[in-house]
Simulated assay, not measured.
Amino acid sequence: MPRRGPRPRWCSEACKQAAYRERHRERIAAARREAYATARQRARVAWFHQRFHQIGSDRSLGVNAALELMWELAGRDDSTRLTPKQAYRRASRRWHPDVPEGDETVFKLLQAVYRVLVASHPDWHRQ
C-alpha cells in the first residue's frame, strides 16, 4: 500500500542536513565565530589570573613585563598608537568588576601593573 501524505522533500537525512546548512550558512558561521571568541576570551582571562597569582611578595614585576601586560590588558590594537595613560584607561573600563564582562582579579593585576609603571616613571600618570 502506498504511503499517504505529502511527499518527502529530501531523499535522505544527509540531504536534509545539507539543505539546512546551505540555508543557514551565515548564521552558523556567526555562531562559530562567537563561540571561538568566547573561548579565546576565557583563555585570556585564565592567563591573566595565572599572571596575577605569579606576582606576589616572592616575585616582583619588572617594568618591561608591566608595560607588555598593560598593552595586553588594553587589548593591543596596533592600528592606533595609545599613550600609557590611554591604555590604562581603556583597560580599566574593559576589566572593571562592575562592567558585565569585567573581572576582579584581572582588574587587580591592572592595578599592580599601574603601580609598577608609576613607580618607575613618576611623570607617567601626568601624560
Rank of each mutant, 00 (worst) to 15 (best):
M1K: 10
P2Y: 12
R7I: 13
R7S: 12
P8V: 05
P8C: 13
P8Y: 13
P8G: 11
R9C: 10
W10L: 09
W10E: 12
C11L: 15
S12F: 12
E13F: 11
A14R: 14
C15V: 04
C15P: 05
C15G: 13
Q17T: 09
Q17G: 08
A18F: 08
A18P: 05
R21S: 08
R23M: 09
R25I: 06
E26C: 07
E26G: 06
R27L: 12
R27C: 06
R27D: 12
A30N: 11
A31D: 15
A31F: 09
A31C: 09
A31W: 10
R32Q: 14
R33Y: 10
R33E: 14
A35L: 08
Y36M: 13
Y36S: 12
T38P: 01
T38Q: 08
A39N: 09
A39Y: 05
A39I: 04
R40V: 06
R40C: 11
R40P: 02
Q41W: 14
R42M: 13
R42F: 10
R44N: 11
R44G: 06
W47E: 14
F48N: 06
H49Q: 07
H49L: 07
R51T: 03
R51C: 04
H53V: 07
Q54M: 09
S57G: 08
S60T: 04
S60P: 05
G62W: 00
V63R: 07
N64G: 04
A66I: 00
L67P: 00
L67W: 00
E68W: 10
E68S: 13
E72W: 04
E72I: 01
L73W: 02
A74V: 09
G75A: 11
G75R: 07
D77P: 04
T80P: 08
T80M: 15
L82R: 15
Q86I: 06
Q86T: 10
A87W: 10
Y88V: 06
Y88I: 09
Y88M: 12
R89L: 10
A91L: 07
A91C: 07
R94S: 07
R94T: 04
P97K: 02
P97S: 05
D98K: 01
P100G: 06
D103K: 02
E104W: 03
E104A: 13
E104P: 02
E104Q: 05
F107K: 00
K108T: 01
L109G: 01
A112W: 02
R115P: 02
R115S: 11
V116M: 07
L117S: 04
L117F: 02
V118C: 15
S120N: 14
S120G: 12
H121W: 12
H121C: 10
H121F: 15
D123L: 15
D123C: 10
D123A: 14
W124E: 13
